[in-house]
Design a binder for these strands. Structure first.
Lengths: 115, 115
DNA sequence: TCCATAATCAACCTATTGGTTGATCAACCG
DNA sequence: CGGTTGATCAACCAATAGGTTGATTATGGA
């Protein structure tokens, strides 16, 4: 896990437990115990996962008596998505240009055949 | 790093060196030495990064004499992007619904004030 | 006040990451 | 053939990840 924001976001997303937690939080706030309920592992392990998500700014935590409700933050997801889309599109556009060049070369070859 | 494809993709993206390599490959094929050139670290370290990217299916490698040209594969990027977008939208839609409910409650309150 | 509940802190353990250096393999070229 | 270049393999190392158990903190309720 690296120090920059984008690396922290992707590292946080690279664990299925944490992704499941985020998926749950997309439906609304939840406490630590509620989030831990579906998993086999200890509450402390979930607490550690939440700390990772918090440091990656993917969640924020409030205070309601002894409960600490977790809330999803979508801003880092947006940044991560933008990074991915950017390079997907660069690659796609490049392939499109290559395709056009090939078409052009084929046409030129056609022309030569007819001479 | 986990065994499932999505975890492997995100884990691969969680390193700035690997992201820079992918960014370079979005512009077209490159050999290991070409990819290593901008970095301070050893060629072997880059080779390891490429192995991570290959296992995550983010790149494929050909054979051209003693060169091993690397090529970007966008399919895993698409899957990763879809995962992120899905939960961003779930969260956004939920907030929209909450907003509408609040509007409705406000209107009801208005009505009561006028009785 | 005393106890139960929610959650975190602390110490520990094992496996993995991300880097190093040195040796090796594979292909071309004089 | 022998040397050079491109790249990987192997062994090693320090730091981190992801889990455990046990102790601790904070709040609410009888």
């Amino acid at each position: 896990m690296e120090d920059d924001q984008l690396s922290a976001t992707f590292a946080a997303l690279a664990d299925p437990t944490r992704r499941a937690i985020l998926a749950r939080l997309a439906d609304g706030e939840a406490t630590v115990n509620q989030l831990a309920e579906p998993f086999e592992m200890s509450l402390q392990a979930i607490s550690k996962h939440l700390k990772v998500l918090e440091r990656a700014r993917l969640i924020t935590r409030g205070r309601d008596a002894q409960w600490r409700p977790c809330r999803l933050q979508t801003a880092p997801l947006e940044t991560a998505s933008e990074w991915i889309e950017r390079y997907r599109h660069v690659a796609r556009d490049r392939l499109d240009r290559l395709d056009k060049e090939i078409q052009k070369l084929k046409q030129q070859q056609e022309g030569q055949n007819h001479e």
